[in-house]
Design a protein around this nucleic acid. Structure first.
Length: 121
DNA sequence: TTTCTAACA
DNA sequence: TGTTAGCA
């Protein structure tokens, strides 16, 4: 399918779709007319990518993880020390954010619980 | 009409 | 990221 349809089905702008390709996150084929030709699978892949980006991962880190998401690799390629370090940092940042989010969620939940003693509120 | 590339805001 | 220009 062409970029327009991928955009409609994922809610991701064509501009962003092209940007992801530029970043090596997507590698759609090309038709004779030069148009990008995405496999049906791309829709799920884009959602996956969006999720990771929304989770705070950098496109740089994603580039190395994408192959696994697509199930293109059966066995892990030997990750270089720099990649291990990069992903390690991303992981630490995620943990940090999760801790922060958990704390805030609990605080808000407690506030609501205290503010609304009875269900009738 | 849709997509493409490139560049500016 | 949105938008825009000029093509095919």
């Amino acid at each position: 399918m062409r970029i327009g349809e991928v955009s409609r089905r994922t809610g991701v702008s064509t501009r962003l779709l092209r940007y992801y390709e530029e970043q090596g996150l997507l590698q759609p084929a090309r038709s004779e007319n030069g148009y990008r030709d995405y496999p049906d699978q791309a829709v799920a892949c884009v959602h996956q990518i969006r999720g990771l980006i929304d989770a705070g991962l950098s496109t740089r880190a994603l580039r190395s993880v994408i192959p696994y998401l697509e199930g293109a690799l059966t066995l892990p390629p030997s990750p270089g020390p720099e990649l291990v370090a990069l992903l390690g940092n991303e992981l630490a940042q995620l943990d940090e954010r999760i801790t922060c989010l958990t704390r805030n969620r609990d605080a808000i939940r407690d506030y609501l619980t205290a503010s609304r003693p009875s269900p009738e509120g």
